[in-house]
Design a protein around this nucleic acid. Structure first.
Lengths: 214, 214
DNA sequence: GCGTGTGAACACCTTCACAGCT
DNA sequence: AGCTGTGAAGGTGTTCACACGC
């Protein structure tokens, strides 16, 4: 059983790996695989088996010595570790092309992340429906969050207004932010923020593409 | 002047930070700031000043002791380090909502990443124009790449066909891949691949949101 | 005097190697 | 005998602290 864990003692790099394990375990379950060893799982996702066992060990003892892990059980435990024992409600701030693409992204619902609202400042899109109800004005944000709990805000507004938009979300009670705008924003310590920076990803590639020039 | 660098000796974590520096330096340049110290830059992007100086030191000596860095010069040097002394051509494989959103993303062109083609397998979108010419069939990929050099492929196809799509891109000569499909794909050693996993980012947030449950 | 550039100290993460349980 | 769980070793990245040059 998953023991109680002080999450600050879990290396931050472990968390995305847990997501990786979870996805692969669901795949294995769908294929009807009942048991798996860290060795075998490691081969499937190209990692060191000790890494996998260590990652699990932050949360409890999920396996059986001499045997391995039961896929079903392990999948459930890891989902729990990631906070997926419940669903989370998500809003999208910015109904531009990216925001609209994310509203309908199927990968979110698979893990019980539900997009419950979309907000924008532009008259051109307010009122339109791209998949999670009509687009609301950002001015309605506070009231909306008061009426129903919102856990996560995805920020897809232009960089110039990202900071103020995030501030509004935090003021409205949102405690987690996924920021697609290419600006680093300061938030209170009890708010989790994560940056997704697409041009920076391309620069990562151009850095290594350009290596032979030296 | 930037010295010749063996890029494999540069920590991988340094690279996204270079992108961060570059963006901030452009901002400073636009504001008319001529000079900056590592101390001041560190405050602006919330990092340790020694970290910044160490990152630069992998590539050369860009500053003046007792003085600091000339913004213009530093910006140019870092752009060069990231391979941005030239432009790079990008194709998008998968003209679904995400792919279509990326075609028109302004952040790419800012750094001379040019989307030169969009490909899909579905009759519903082939022929439509979302911003980088008409959508072509994936079957035309090989021929397209033979006619003009393609540096980077962004993969926005469904997970189930991501692997074969990436294989096709690599076979056609693409040497860098930004994969938005939630599957880890094996590529030859001389191909750079980078994963952007949106549901995994949300799980990162739910992990920390759920911390107080313990 | 001041801020860079960098070896050395430190902290963090990964991997090894084996004790312990089945 | 086999595979997990984990202390200890090893490696990588960060921060300190100071020598060096303006």
């Amino acid at each position: 059983m998953a023991r109680n864990v002080d999450k600050s003692s879990v290396p931050a790099v472990t968390v995305p790996r847990l997501a990786l394990y979870l996805r692969k375990l669901r795949e294995l379950k769908a294929q009807g695989t009942a048991r798996i060893s860290s060795q075998h799982l490691a081969e499937l996702i190209d990692l060191n088996p000790a890494q996998i066992r260590k990652d699990f060990s932050y949360f409890g003892e999920f396996g059986t010595r001499g045997v391995g892990y039961e896929v079903q059980r392990l999948e459930e435990e890891i989902a729990k570790c990631l906070g997926l024992w419940r669903s989370w409600s998500v809003i999208i701030l910015g109904a531009g092309k990216l925001g609209r693409a994310l509203v309908q992204y199927r990968g979110f619902a698979e893990y019980q992340f539900n997009v419950v609202g979309v907000f924008d400042n532009s008259e051109h899109v307010i009122g339109a429906n791209y998949g999670a109800g009509r687009v609301r004005s950002v001015a309605e944000l506070e009231e909306f969050c008061a009426q129903q709990p919102v856990d996560i805000a995805m920020i897809t507004v232009p960089a110039a207004v990202a900071e103020e938009t995030i501030d509004k979300a935090v003021a409205a009670g949102v405690r987690a932010v996924l920021n697609f705008a290419p600006v680093k924003v300061h938030v209170p310590a009890d708010v989790v923020i994560r940056q997704v920076d697409l041009s920076s990803e391309l620069m990562f590639l151009s850095f290594y593409l350009d290596r032979e020039r030296e």
